[in-house]
Amino acid sequence: MDFQPDLPIPISYVSGRYLLFSIDAVTYLRREHHICGVLIGTLPQIPQQNVFLGLPLELMPEEARLLVDKGVACIVDEAKAHDGMNTLLEEDRRRYLRDLESQGLHVSRIQSDRKERNREQTLKKLEEKKANAKAKATASAAAAQTPTVPEEATSTPSPKNAAIVDLFNAEDRSSSPSTALASTPPQGAVAITPATSYPPLSTPPPSSHLSAPAVPPSYPLFAHLHSKGYFLSPGLRFGCQYMAYPGDPLRFHSHFLVVSYDWDQNIDIMDLVVGGRLGTGVKKGFLIGGAQKGIDEANSEADRVDTVRAFSLEWAGM
């Protein structure tokens, strides 16, 4: 499933946050551009749990900036982009709803097909079992030479089997023409909640794109490490600015705790001990670095990224 979304991907700017609502865009950016972001969507009924989070995906300003600079994404003011929702024509609205319904029908048809297939498979298995049991029973009957026993053996399992089938798919059991029921439209259609709003709305024109996000002074180091193939994620949980993973965070442990400094910013020697010690304690390196050029000395951020120097620290153990 190598889905290629239309570029540039619109990043929704909502009250100071950079969000992605399309799962296709999220997987594409992770796969092709090593941008992971953080999933922040929780379940409406259990908003406290934060173990299983889903869409939307929040991007750090650094991530959004990097994508915009690469020409992969653009920033769209979410509120403004939805002004068009009010002026949507009645006809368009109806067509959109009809479209959603037909998608829902498609999904329910796939589901019922799958159910039917499962049912057939279990029935087939049961029949095989029954045949086996029968063969065994006749064999044992032949040995015992009592004609009443085999009859009982064959008759008892069938109601039991029926009960098992019942358990497997309770709704389907009531009637065999369940497929016919699914094909009658309104009840069968699965309600679809779209995560994005650009099927009814047109993609916003380039003139309406917001400018590239403002980034913290640590951006050059972020972009430098990203260009070297590292996956970066926010480091708050680990006591640093970024975590640098050598591959997808789902497959790798991180290599570095990253902290950025300006070229002439004073570094407390004690901070180096603290970072080095913390990193070594969790089998990571402590990486510090920054651009040699200040913001006012360089023409662009990209210019500064080329002048980044970094150093990694580990406890020497002596």
Binding site: A244, H255, F256, G276, G285, A310, F311, S312, E314, W315
Partner: peptide, 27 residues
Amino acid sequence: MADKGMGGDGTVAYYVVHEGDVKPRQN
């Protein structure tokens, strides 16, 4: 890093510094 605060107890801490990103040891 030599400790000179509090009169200094003579402790010196040593850290290995690499130029650039060098993957950490897995000790």
